[in-house]
Design a protein around this nucleic acid. Structure first.
Lengths: 237, 237
DNA sequence: AATAAAACATGATAAAAATCATGTTTCTTC
DNA sequence: GAAGAAACATGATTTTTATCATGTTTTATT
């Protein structure tokens, strides 16, 4: 595990702050936070934190994409969540004073700040608005998890696969061409989110491709027929 | 939908308060809360709140058991969570100022208090400890949801069924005989938690019964061989 | 207590999805 | 740029699970 490279900038000038939970901080609070954070760059595939580790601070993604995974029963990986710039990562274990129940791994080169635990707790207490932002983030994550439970319980693999592509699109958006999903995942990683075997995942993507619903180019997936994809996902009503 | 019957008691004398998020309140705060809550009794099967409704307050279960469900795609019910005395219910939608994404239905006669929304928000702001208790509750619910996701993704129906029985035992405990799970659910409800068909649920319970792992008596399920049940659930080591 | 409805049960069948096997392509790394 | 590894792909087979069908038991209602 290579050591991430560090660099520093003031939080006041952070270009993603306004899209993060820290948008509610002002003036002197930002200078104070700058003094209690440090920023590092990570290469693709590096661990930001690992299952069973002890949190020492809160991670805030400056740039890059992250997968949050947990290890299942025969060591099989489950992707629980994806993060992008502006997202905080590892907040649950930190706040509830537990070891990490999941790992965070970069999906591409990334720069991520870590905010000192003691300072973060102090900021939470002194700034109810910040606490409220964190609560809203947790609330969204809980809602997303519950939606995922319903899908896994009630939809078949084909529907879940279509839904996963829509989820990736919603999370990371399109590239400049307005159709290619702006993230590269292996088929195995997609399967680990959808809850299926790698083979079934590959097969379904091929089928979607043959049906001209999507186009495949290596790891890049383009959505050609969005209405059809939505219909395949069997989204409510 | 029958109207629940109301009755009142002071929160200071509430017998479940110390097992709830309100254990951190003291003295005058309790009198104030008493003035901003009202308590009602519900018959088995009544709705406490319903999907798409607007929250008007926070529910706190005094006695009785509650299922939190959401409606899936062809109207199929999904049980997301179960609540018991001391649990708060409906907090997520309330806090994030949304309509309910799920419904709460009593599994038996219950008495449930509703704490006025405006007062609750005021209490949250003025009492960081209370906010922190709510955050911890949400954190536990999120963890539970993520564990459920891993099960649904990676375990087969038999393993999930065994796990569900262990979950019911962990949630509601045993009756006086120290083996009968202290809750009555229909096979369909269990299936709606496990994410399987009612028939598969019935079949697996029959099998577990034949294997002398459990005993069945109507809706009552007794755990006869706990180690075997744990092994069947394929719980992590 | 009679009747209806809901819940439980079980066999037979069909559909869905995992697994196994094997081959090809695409990345990494020396 | 060659060798090896990882990722992708696809057919065949087996396993798992849902669905359909039908009957019984339990619970609720008049």
């Amino acid at each position: 595990m290579k050591k991430p490279i560090q660099f520093e900038t003031g939080c006041a000038h952070c270009n993603v702050r306004m899209h993060s939970v820290f948008n509610v901080l002002e003036g002197e609070q930002l200078n104070e936070m700058t003094m209690h954070k440090s920023c590092s760059t990570y290469k693709k595939g590096q661990y930001v934190f690992a299952e069973n580790g002890l949190p020492t601070g809160l991670f805030c993604v400056n740039s890059g994409k992250i997968k949050i995974t947990t290890t299942g029963f025969d060591g099989k990986e489950q992707i629980l969540r994806l993060a992008k710039s502006g997202d905080i990562v590892g907040y649950r274990a930190l706040i509830s004073n537990e070891r990490y129940a999941s790992s965070a791994v970069t999906l591409e080169d990334a720069s991520i700040c870590i905010i000192d635990k003691a300072y973060f707790f102090k900021a939470l207490e002194s700034t109810p608005k910040l606490m409220f932002e964190v609560v809203k983030k947790m609330s969204r994550d809980l809602k997303e998890a519950e939606d995922h439970i319903v899908s896994l319980s009630q939809k078949n693999v084909r529907e879940r696969m279509a839904e996963a592509l829509l989820f990736l699109k919603a999370t990371y958006g399109f590239e400049a061409d307005q159709k290619t999903i702006n993230v590269s995942l292996t088929r195995e990683e997609i399967a680990d989110y959808v809850g299926t075997s790698t083979e079934s995942c590959i097969r379904l993507l091929s089928e979607f491709n043959q049906d001209k619903m999507i186009a495949l180019n290596g790891k890049k997936i383009s959505i050609i027929n969005l209405p059809m994809l939505i219909q395949t996902a069997n989204i409510e009503d």
